[in-house]
Amino acid sequence: MKTVVEQVKDAEEKAEEKIEQAREEKQEIIEEAREKAEEKIEKARKRSSEKKEKELEDFEQELEEKKQSIIEEAEKEAEELRRDAEENEDSAVEFLTEKFTEEFLEG
């Protein structure tokens, strides 16, 4: 049979073992929590980055569509101006011919 001192010593050793085991478990829990937090932060950063990239792509697409619309409108206006100029050219030639004839040939 163990003496009281031996029993106290055994109890102290068991208590120390349990304390050390609790410290190790605590450290494992802290490490797991850090890893999970880092994973969540990384996922949030990735989602944020993907969202920004999508917004940028959408903005670039919108700009491209507006640019195409402006180009198409400008081309239409240029074509109208060309047509008007061609129509006016015939009228201008006719007008100048009449004025020339009036001034120099009839006049």
Score class of each variant (00 low, 15 high):
76 K>N: 14
32 E>A: 11
32 E>C: 03
32 E>M: 13
83 R>I: 06
99 K>S: 04
56 L>N: 10
64 E>G: 04
81 L>S: 13
55 E>P: 00
73 E>R: 11
59 F>Q: 14
33 A>S: 10
31 E>C: 02
49 S>D: 06
78 A>V: 09
106 E>L: 15
82 R>P: 06
101 T>S: 12
83 R>L: 15
13 E>L: 10
85 A>E: 07
76 K>Y: 09
85 A>Y: 08
40 K>I: 02
43 K>T: 02
7 Q>K: 08
75 E>A: 15
35 E>A: 04
12 E>D: 15
74 A>Y: 06
60 E>K: 15
81 L>N: 14
16 E>P: 02
10 D>A: 04
21 Q>A: 15
67 K>G: 06
19 I>D: 11
3 T>Y: 00
40 K>M: 04
58 D>G: 01
3 T>V: 03
65 E>S: 12
43 K>Q: 15
47 R>C: 14
47 R>L: 13
59 F>A: 13
88 N>Y: 01
68 Q>D: 11
70 I>H: 10
40 K>H: 04
58 D>K: 08
60 E>W: 15
57 E>G: 03
107 G>E: 04
93 V>A: 02
36 K>G: 01
34 R>N: 09
24 E>A: 13
4 V>H: 14
107 G>P: 00
90 D>M: 04
41 I>T: 02
26 K>A: 14
84 D>N: 12
96 L>K: 05
60 E>P: 15
